[in-house]
């Protein structure tokens, strides 16, 4: 299955990846060949098969509702690109 450049651009937008037109062309070809590879899946007969999301047949464990985490804002924000008064700063959010 081959991908069009428009589809590639839509995917890149959904994934928030900026690319040059040359890169977009290149990725379009590569993604098309990857999709050809995965298209082999369509051969498998799976009508009666339950999808498997996880290798282990376990159920979710629950955590008691007790506070275990303390304020570590300073250490967490020491790796942040931009902070002010304890807030993470980003370009204006427009609603």
């Amino acid at each position: 299955m081959s991908l069009t450049i428009e589809q590639l651009k839509q995917v890149a937008h959904l994934a928030r990846l900026e690319m040059t037109p040359d890169q977009a062309d290149h990725y379009t070809q590569q993604l098309s060949s990857i999709l050809d590879l995965v298209d082999q899946l369509q051969q498998a007969k799976t009508d009666q098969v339950e999808p498997m999301a996880h290798p282990l047949e376990m159920s979710q464990r629950l955590r008691p509702d007790t506070v275990t985490e303390t304020n570590q804002r300073d250490v967490f924000q020491s790796v942040a690109p931009s902070v002010e008064d304890g807030l993470y700063v980003v370009p204006k959010v427009i609603e």
Binding site: E84, D85, G86, L87, Y88, V89, V90, P91, K92, V93
Partner: peptide, 9 residues
């Protein structure tokens, strides 16, 4: 308190 920016809490 922000100009052209927003703060995230």
């Amino acid at each position: 308190g922000f100009v052209g920016a927003s703060g995230i809490d």
